[in-house]
Simulated scan of single mutants.
Amino acid sequence: MSAKTLSLHHAVKAAIVLGFAMLIVYLVKSDNLTLYIAPRMAGYVKWSAVGLYAVGIYELYLAVSTRWGRVSACDCDHPPSRSALKNTTVYGLFVLPLLLGFLLPNTTLGSSMAAKKGMNLNASASIRKEPAAPAPSPASNAAAQSSDRAGSASPSGGSPGNAGGAGSSAAPTGSATASDDSKLNELFKADKFTQAYADYGKKLYAMPTIDVQESWYLETLNTVDLYIDNFVGHRMDMSGFVYRQDGMKDNQFVVGRFAISCCSADAAPYGVLVEYDRAKSWANDTWVRVSGTLQKTTYDGDEVMMLKVDKVTKLETPKDKQYVYPNPDFGL
């Protein structure tokens, strides 16, 4: 391969690598980087731009040096293919997404993508739960009852309810706080997989109004959905975009958000079904804040939580808080 052709290949590689570095800088400068990746990944992506710039400059050096014959072949490199079709295909795989990144508008995910992915109205469906213990056999039940009867007799001659004899006093009833804790523990039963949600549920249960904040969006919806029987009748406020799908009534829509773990490729829509008398007056993708009372209903064969809304407020489309992310502090 001639020095001129090899130099051209190095120049193309330099243009592609520097193009991706410039795209990252452009997204950072325009505050659009979080439309594509989670904030916790932003630092890594920004540093990758530095590495891409270094690689691009090195490729430019090779392009110039090869063109003027200053780089001697060592028979240890991997020269490009001599096929124009193969080279065009390989470089096109990088050039096409680069052009799309610069040419297409930076927009948020909304109803159209939610319709393709499917809105998740059962937020807690993915939470793993400990399998229920098998029911004891009749024989084991009989043995347990026999053991209980044998152990209930008082060695001092007292009654079965007072093993300490006639002189024993009754146990204290405990403080009001202990009683409240016992009630909450009964309401929010948990296993090793749901303990964090039970603990968070106790905090939500004590609130006069559950305010679904962006930083705790997934955790709040998961908890309320997991223990929905405890929250029926409670007030809840939340915000998101309006979404509708086939089969919904005229007075129904979903207030939803896209949750992202790493990048927009793994985005999944989560939301709450709401009922509102003037629901038809709110168009899809309108950002709203709704307030209402939690209830249960059946939708598409599944039992889901539903917000009976009495107030809807229109919001401006948020610039930097369109998406929600798993909270790393949950359960700590």
Results as ranks from 00 to 15, higher is better:
G165S: 03
A196N: 14
Y227S: 03
L204S: 05
S168V: 06
K189I: 10
G233C: 06
M207W: 01
L184P: 07
D225I: 09
N222Q: 15
D191Y: 05
F188M: 11
A166F: 14
D229H: 06
M236H: 00
R235W: 00
T194R: 11
S215R: 10
A176M: 08
G240Y: 05
F193E: 14
L187G: 07
F188L: 13
K189F: 05
G167R: 06
F241K: 04
M236W: 01
D237W: 02
L187H: 07
Y243P: 01
E186N: 14
L226W: 01
G174W: 12
E214K: 08
S215N: 13
A170M: 08
Q195N: 12
K203S: 15
L221R: 06
D229Q: 08
E186L: 11
G165E: 04
A206R: 15
F193P: 03
H234F: 09
E214G: 04
F188A: 11
E219A: 09
N230F: 00
S239R: 13
V242T: 07
D229E: 12
S168E: 12
F231W: 02
N230W: 01
G233A: 07
Y200F: 15
T223I: 09
Y205H: 14
A178C: 05
A178E: 15
M238T: 14
I210T: 00
A166Q: 14
G201R: 10
L218M: 12
P172D: 15
G201K: 10
K189T: 15
S179M: 10
M238V: 07
D229F: 01
E214H: 08
G240P: 01
T220M: 03
Y205V: 07
G165C: 05
A206K: 15
H234V: 01
M207G: 01
I210R: 00
D191P: 06
Q195L: 13
L221A: 04
A196L: 03
D191V: 08
P172T: 15
A170C: 03
T220W: 04
S168H: 04
T223C: 09
S239Y: 04
A206D: 12
V232M: 00
L187D: 09
S175Y: 10
P172H: 14
G240I: 02
S182D: 07
A190L: 07
D191K: 06
D229P: 02
A190G: 07
G167D: 12
Y217I: 06
G167Y: 05
A166M: 13
G167N: 13
D181L: 12
S239F: 03
M236G: 02
W216T: 15
D191A: 07
Y197G: 02
T209A: 06
Q195V: 15
D180W: 08
F193A: 11
K183Q: 12
L218S: 08
G165K: 04
V242D: 02
S175L: 11
K202Q: 15
K183T: 13
E219L: 09
S182M: 04
A176R: 08
S179W: 03
L221D: 03
D229S: 13
D199E: 14
V212P: 02
L184M: 13
L184F: 04
S215M: 08
T220L: 03
D180E: 15
L218R: 06
K183F: 05
P208E: 13
Y227R: 05
K192F: 04
D237V: 07
T173D: 08
D211A: 07
A170Y: 07
M236T: 02
A190N: 14
Y205N: 10
A176P: 00
F193K: 13
E186H: 10
